[in-house]
């Protein structure tokens, strides 16, 4: 997921070319307080006319407690980007208010309530504490994300490369997302010149269960894809498992073994996920 400052036309117009799975057009932290109107109007115009190809498009609005949030929704929600990202989500009450406003706008424009989803962003200790409630509150919330910088500030701890201070928060957020079968997206890695550091951080994020990671520079995208992309060996094995499964299923055999190892449901699930990441259609096997 690539962050793009909402008031930067050069970056906005190229948002779709970098191979990011999704882009985040940011009206919040990346925009100066006296340019909020300019960014909002620019993002609206860009959403209307720029082709982002297959990239999922999210817009991060300002919090409704600021003088900007409501206006952001009025301008952006009618264009129905794939998702609205809501910053500093702390309670389900906030979320309820957000959804109510969005649905009112949608009703006004005769738009459905089930197209545009919400990404709740957890950036405070209180948000972390309530994350399980937040994740299960509404089916419009289809991803939980963590804002590492703000969380570090909120906890009044030092920001480190390893991010050990927010480790528990990362894991809680993943757990809350998994429990509700929605995505968890990891925070950015800020040093864009430290490619090895980014790789290590991404490998960790993958290991603890994040389904993706945010980036602040397009140069970081390839490394993240590289980490998340299954290896050739993994793909081949997954392919074999699915192939055998289908063959056995046809013959009515439920349980079977490959290389002496029992193939059960969790292994099957994992194999299909691997193929999905590698862009291999399950039905084509």
């Amino acid at each position: 997921m690539l962050y793009i400052p909402g008031n930067n036309p050069a970056m906005l117009q190229q948002g779709g070319i970098y191979g990011a799975d999704s882009i985040l057009l940011d009206l919040e932290d990346a925009v100066a307080l006296n340019q909020k109107d300019a960014a909002r109007i620019l993002v609206r115009n860009v959403l209307k006319s720029i082709n982002f190809y297959n990239t999922e498009v999210c817009v991060r609005i300002n919090h409704l407690d600021t003088p900007f949030g409501l206006e952001d929704l009025e301008e952006i929600a009618p264009l129905q980007p794939d998702a609205i990202r809501y910053p500093k989500t702390e309670t389900v009450e906030e979320l309820a208010k957000l959804i109510q406003i969005i649905e009112a706008i949608e009703d006004k424009h005769n738009l459905p309530h089930d197209k545009m989803t919400i990404h709740a962003m957890i950036e405070t200790a209180l948000g972390v504490q309530n994350v399980f409630e937040i994740a299960k509150f509404s089916k419009r919330v289809d991803a939980i994300t963590i804002g590492g910088q703000d969380l570090t500030a909120d906890m009044n701890i030092k920001s480190t490369k390893e991010g050990s201070g927010i480790d528990l928060a990362r894991k809680m957020i993943v757990m809350a997302a998994k429990a509700n079968k929605i995505d968890a997206i990891d925070t950015v890695f800020v040093d864009i010149n430290d490619e090895d550091g980014l790789r290590i951080d991404t490998e960790y994020a993958k290991q603890i269960g994040f389904s993706g990671k945010a980036v602040i520079n397009p140069r970081q995208i390839d490394i993240i894809h590289d980490v998340y992309m299954p290896t050739e060996e993994e793909i081949r094995k997954a392919y074999r498992i699915v192939l055998e499964f289908k063959k056995n299923k046809k013959e009515g055999i439920g349980a079977f073994a490959i290389d002496g190892k029992m193939i059960d449901a969790p292994i099957m699930t994992r194999a299909t996920q691997v193929l999905e990441l590698a862009n291999i259609d399950f039905n084509s096997i």
């Binding site: 190229q14 070319i17 970098y18 191979g19 520079n217 397009p218 140069r219």
Partner: peptide, 8 residues
Amino acid sequence: TKSPMDLR
């Protein structure tokens, strides 16, 4: 180059 476009 460090230009994201050129690198892409």
